[in-house]
Write a protein that binds this DNA or RNA. Sequence first.
DNA 1: CCGTACATGTCGCTT
DNA 2: AAGCGACGTGTACGG
Lengths: 231, 231
Amino acid sequence: MRLVIAQCSVDYAGRLSAHLPLATRLLVLKQDGSLLIHSDGGSYKPLNWMSPPCLLTVHEPEEEQAEFGVTQVWRVTHSKTADMLVVSIHEIFSEVIHELGEEPGLIKNGVEADLQKLLAEQIELLGEGFTLVRREHMTAIGPVDILARDAKGAAVAIEIKRRGDIDGVEQLTRYLTLMNRDPHLAPVAGVFAAQEIKPQARTLAEDRGITCLVLDYEAMRGMDDAHLRLF
Amino acid sequence: MRLVIAQCSVDYAGRLSAHLPLATRLLVLKQDGSLLIHSDGGSYKPLNWMSPPCLLTVHEPEEEQAEFGVTQVWRVTHSKTADMLVVSIHEIFSEVIHELGEEPGLIKNGVEADLQKLLAEQIELLGEGFTLVRREHMTAIGPVDILARDAKGAAVAIEIKRRGDIDGVEQLTRYLTLMNRDPHLAPVAGVFAAQEIKPQARTLAEDRGITCLVLDYEAMRGMDDAHLRLF
DNA sequence: CCGTACATGTCGCTT
DNA sequence: AAGCGACGTGTACGG
């Protein structure tokens, strides 16, 4: 990894065109040739960047550029698309090169996949006598997160989100419409389950006869641990 | 801006929980207290981060941590949410501090807005005898991109996207439902126009009787140039 | 390799 | 604050 703090201007041409006027910025050049250009603020998104696979080449400035103070030009081109990033460097203030070595990678807990796994294991959270049919039940338009049956054996489709937004209700509605055309399944009830359900989403869901269920991830994980301890 | 290359492990607790095992990484500490943790690969998204507004405090390691080689602990807490990032630093290999100064900001030139303008000008792309009523036709829930009439004078609502996703079909469907309640407009046909239409979106659109139209931006722009050359 | 859904999405805008 | 749409979305997963 190579870290350069430099006064530079930047031009990008690709899916859109963009320009960064002359200023001092951080350039991060990674092992794979990718480049990030960060300012000293904002969030984690760089001002400009090039994603791998890409190639960096360093050039002498043209005469006209040199007159304006450009000392070197970095040209980063994407290997597949025609995207290109041109960094015109005026002055370099600092430069550090360091080998970072292997990155073991991030371990995550509490994403949608975890919620789905836990709810499938604890399907009784939906109500007395509920049974799991399967996770990721395929329909023509995509997989329903969980297909279950209630105490009377009627089909129930469950959509799980970390944050229950209106989009999720629309998604579940599409599945329900399709599944209710299938005489083997119909009638299919819907359950919208999330750690947090937005008021508007709840209103829409209930208007469509969809049950809302707020999931407590910590409690479910605690239950999971308790399960494990029994075995 | 402070750049630190260090051997560290990281824990995040917030909207989810995540852990980074011990390895060498780049820590970028910005003026506003925000922190990015980058590996020497991947793309512009950091392995872990904390967005502003947030606060960094540096602590001595607890005895047990010190035994495992931790020399200092960075604790970054978000000022509004309860999100927290803990960086356990073992060894610092490099450290650079530099004032970057003002960032003038990115200047973008998008191509997306052009599509609507071009299609309005070339409304005949929809079919023989089509006429433009207006762009940005207001409805109770927002503006429809283009309202037109077909050769027989029937209303046609057009939704334009660069990438035709399922969300766009939902959006157009909402407009159509509303507009078809208006006796002055009904019946209103729907056209979903985009540079690229995803198969799933096409399936849904056609299931709802919405016509799909793939737009060739280059060709339309060429046509526009031809138009201009005539005047 | 393509298509789909998720994301600590982020960002900018309007209500 | 919440809703909504766009993003050079990126990214992982499954066909």
